[in-house]
């Protein structure tokens, strides 16, 4: 049962879900940092022009990176520290 050995020796990276899909992160990263590390720089659509948006200022000022976290809308992904089991949903538009 080599599989069982591997399971105990290799620590599992923590993960949250993005629109239902698991995304692993390095502890301490923000949601935005974890998304960018996975290659995603956009995860929202503007209300007027239907334009893609995501990370821009990275410090909580521009509000371009909004996501819904565990049902709470309008959260800045660059400020929310990722935690295992969080449910993040994206692309809901920018009307908060």
């Amino acid at each position: 049962m080599t599989g069982a050995v591997a399971e105990t020796d290799v620590p599992t990276a923590p993960a949250f879900t993005v629109d239902g899909e698991p995304l692993t992160f390095v502890p301490g990263q923000t949601l935005a940092a974890a998304l960018v590390a996975s290659g995603r720089v956009a995860w929202r659509t503007t209300r007027g022009g239907q334009r893609p948006r995501g990370i821009f200022c990275g410090i909580g000022v521009c509000y371009d990176c909004l996501v819904t976290v565990d049902g709470r809308r309008g959260q800045r992904a660059c400020l929310v520290r990722a935690r295992a089991g969080m449910a993040v949903t994206t692309g809901e538009g920018d009307d908060g």
């Binding site: 935005a32 590390a37 720089v41 521009c62 660059c78």
Partner: peptide, 24 residues
């Protein structure tokens, strides 16, 4: 400037210093 992949210089730096992430 509103295309994804365009960030503020400070945003690039905050990803690096805060989470060790390179944006591109």
């Amino acid at each position: 400037w509103d295309l994804p992949g365009v960030l503020t210089a400070g945003g690039l730096q905050s990803l690096l210093k805060g989470g060790g992430v390179v944006a591109g």
